[in-house]
Every structure is written in C-alpha cells, then in structure tokens.
C-alpha cells in the first residue's frame, strides 16, 4: 500500500520530525516499500492467536517500594544543552 505526501507529513508530525519538501518524496517512496513489506502479514491466519506479551512468558518482577536512588541532578545536567539554576531551559511555551 502506498503512502501519500499528506500521510508522510502527518506521520512526521506525530514523530516530531521536521521533513523538508525536498525530502518528502523520498520518504513516500521508501516508507511505502517498507509498508508493502510488512503488509505481507495481512495474509497470515492469526485467528484466535494470543498476541505475544513476552518472549519467555515471564511476569514482571516487583520490588519493595523503597528509595534506592540518590540525587544526581548536577551530574546528569552536565549533559544538558541549556540549564539555568538547575532547570532545563527551552523556548518560551507560555506567553
């Protein structure tokens, strides 16, 4: 199944990716061929098959509700592009 330019623009927005006008046709072609590949599954008979939740049928482990992590904000924020007073700075959201 082929995707349209509008489909690609919509997916890109959902994925928060900017796609320029000169990139869009390539995305249409390549994503359409990928979707065509994965659409082969439509022919498989999966009537009554329980979707896999875990490859080894393991249950999620629980742990006691205790504090185990210490405050490492300063060391983590050394990787941040823009920090002020221990806060992450982004473009203004609220006028």
């Amino acid at each position: 199944m082929a995707l349209s330019r509008q489909d690609v623009a919509h997916i890109a927005h959902l994925a928060r990716l900017k796609v320029s006008d000169d990139e869009i046709d390539e995305y249409v072609a390549k994503l359409s061929s990928i979707i065509e590949l994965v659409a082969q599954l439509q022919a498989a008979d999966t009537q009554g098959v329980t979707p896999m939740a875990h490859p080894l049928d393991m249950a999620q482990r629980l742990r006691p509700d205790q504090v185990t992590e210490s405050d490492q904000r300063e060391s983590f924020q050394q990787n941040a592009p823009d920090v002020v007073d221990g806060l992450y700075r982004v473009p203004r959201v609220i006028e």
């Binding site: 995707l3 489909d7 690609v8 997916i11 890109a12 959902l14 994925a15 990716l17 995305y27 390549k30 994503l31 990928i34 979707i35 994965v38 599954l41 439509q42 498989a44 999966t46 098959v49 329980t50 979707p51 896999m52 939740a53």
Partner: peptide, 28 residues
C-alpha cells in the same frame, strides 16, 4: 525511516492491522 515506520504502525486506526497482528505472528 524506522521512527516514521514505527509511528505509523502504532498510529490511530492502524494499530490492530499492524502491531497487534505482528505480535500474533510473533507468537506463531
């Protein structure tokens, strides 16, 4: 491309046809 493919197969209206189906074939 993979982010876009993944976003598409999880997006509203396509989840059952792609992701759910794939978890079934994965089980098989």
């Amino acid at each position: 491309r993979r982010i876009m493919t993944g976003t598409y197969v999880l997006s509203a209206g396509y989840y059952d046809a792609y992701y759910l189906k794939a978890q079934q074939t994965r089980e098989l």
